[in-house]
Amino acid sequence: MLRQHPCLARPRRGGPHARLKFFARARLNRELAEIAASPEVRAILEPDGSRPLAATPAEFGARMKQDLAQWKRIAVERKIVAE
């Protein structure tokens, strides 16, 4: 029944919902990148050795895939297993 609501219905490929989601995600990503680069956020993160890294969803996904492969290789080489 909820799927009948326009906001929850599966968008048609290339339809207005898909375009709206694309632009909403792009705007959200852009604004989060601006916030991450702000002096206020840097002042909070840098004392702990952290640094903000703005990335597109595709870049973030690629980075996560790369990190997972790296840690998997390390775990296999060192024979680390979950208990």
Results as ranks from 00 to 15, higher is better:
1 M>F: 11
3 R>M: 13
4 Q>Y: 14
4 Q>G: 04
6 P>F: 12
7 C>Y: 10
7 C>F: 12
8 L>K: 07
8 L>A: 12
10 R>Y: 08
15 G>H: 09
16 P>G: 07
17 H>A: 12
17 H>M: 01
18 A>C: 12
18 A>D: 13
19 R>Y: 04
22 F>K: 14
23 F>K: 07
24 A>R: 09
25 R>F: 03
26 A>L: 15
28 L>W: 05
29 N>R: 08
30 R>Y: 11
32 L>A: 05
33 A>E: 05
34 E>A: 14
34 E>P: 00
38 S>H: 14
39 P>W: 02
39 P>I: 02
40 E>T: 13
41 V>K: 01
41 V>L: 15
46 E>K: 11
47 P>V: 13
47 P>L: 04
48 D>G: 06
49 G>C: 08
50 S>T: 04
50 S>Q: 10
51 R>T: 09
52 P>H: 06
52 P>Y: 00
52 P>Q: 05
53 L>A: 14
55 A>H: 03
56 T>E: 11
56 T>L: 04
56 T>F: 06
58 A>L: 06
59 E>V: 04
60 F>L: 15
62 A>M: 03
67 D>K: 11
70 Q>T: 14
73 R>I: 00
73 R>Y: 00
74 I>P: 01
78 R>M: 07
79 K>I: 00
79 K>W: 01
81 V>G: 01
81 V>S: 08
82 A>P: 00
82 A>R: 15
